Measured scan of single mutants.
Amino acid sequence: KKIKIDLKKGPEGLGFTVVTRDSSIHGPGPIFVKNILPKGAAIKDGRLQSGDRILEVNGRDVTGRTQEELVAMLRSTKQGETASLVIAR
């Protein structure tokens, strides 16, 4: 099931960490939400869960991207702006 979640970045950030699983010589594996932090946009919104697979960030497919690339995409969202995620659960 795909779910679109918009998180408005506040002073505590987006409020979640990510982890890559099953990376191989063929490229990075899928990226999942690792933890929801006690402060930040994710816990206020309440929909994002540990174990959700991140498919898109701000309309860009993240398949084949590294964890570092995904984190850079999320960090490029400025405070007060919205990060738009599509996740699979």
Rank of each mutant, 00 (worst) to 15 (best):
G13V: 01
K9G: 14
H26Q: 07
I25V: 06
A83M: 13
L14Y: 12
K78S: 14
E68T: 05
G46R: 11
A42K: 01
I54P: 00
G10H: 10
T82C: 09
L85C: 04
D52T: 00
L70D: 02
S23Q: 07
F16L: 11
I87M: 10
Q67D: 13
D6L: 14
L48T: 01
K44L: 09
E56S: 12
G13D: 09
R60C: 08
A83Y: 12
D61H: 07
S50D: 15
R75L: 04
P28Y: 04
R65E: 06
V62C: 14
D22F: 04
K78C: 10
G27M: 11
A42V: 02
V71I: 10
Q67M: 03
R47K: 09
V71L: 11
L85T: 03
V71N: 15
N58M: 10
E81G: 10
R21F: 09
Q79A: 06
I5D: 00
G40H: 02
D61G: 10
I87N: 05
S50T: 08
R53D: 04
I87W: 02
I5Q: 00
S76N: 12
G59R: 06
E12Q: 05
S23R: 08
D61T: 07
A83R: 04
T17P: 00
K4D: 08
M73K: 04
D52I: 00
V86S: 12
Q67G: 04
N35E: 14
E69R: 05
R53Y: 09
K78W: 03
G29D: 12
K9Y: 15
K78M: 08
G64V: 09
G40V: 01
G40F: 02
I43F: 06
G40W: 01
G46K: 08
I87C: 11
E81R: 13
P30W: 05
I54S: 00
I54D: 01
K4Y: 14
I43S: 05
P38M: 12
V62F: 10
L48F: 02
R75K: 01
P38L: 10
S23L: 08
H26G: 14
L37Q: 08
D45T: 03
S24P: 10
T63Q: 07
T20F: 04
L48P: 01
S50G: 13
R75A: 10
P28I: 12
V19Q: 15
V86L: 10
G40L: 02
S23H: 12
V57F: 15
T17L: 12
G10W: 04
S23N: 08
A83W: 06
G27E: 13
N58S: 06
R53M: 12
K2E: 07
R75N: 02
K39Q: 13
I5N: 00
V86Y: 09
K78D: 08
E81W: 04
T66S: 09
L48D: 01
A72V: 11
D22Q: 15
L14K: 00
R89W: 00
S76P: 07
A72E: 13
G13H: 03
Q67R: 07
T66A: 07
M73R: 05
T66N: 07
V33D: 01
G10K: 07
S23I: 05
T77M: 13
P28H: 04
K8N: 12
G13W: 01
G80K: 05
I5P: 00
I31S: 13
G80F: 08
T77G: 10
G59L: 05
D61M: 05
H26L: 13
I54C: 02
E56H: 09
I3Q: 03
A72R: 10
P28L: 11
K8E: 11
R60W: 07
K34S: 14
T82Y: 13
D45G: 07
K44H: 15
L37I: 14
S24L: 08
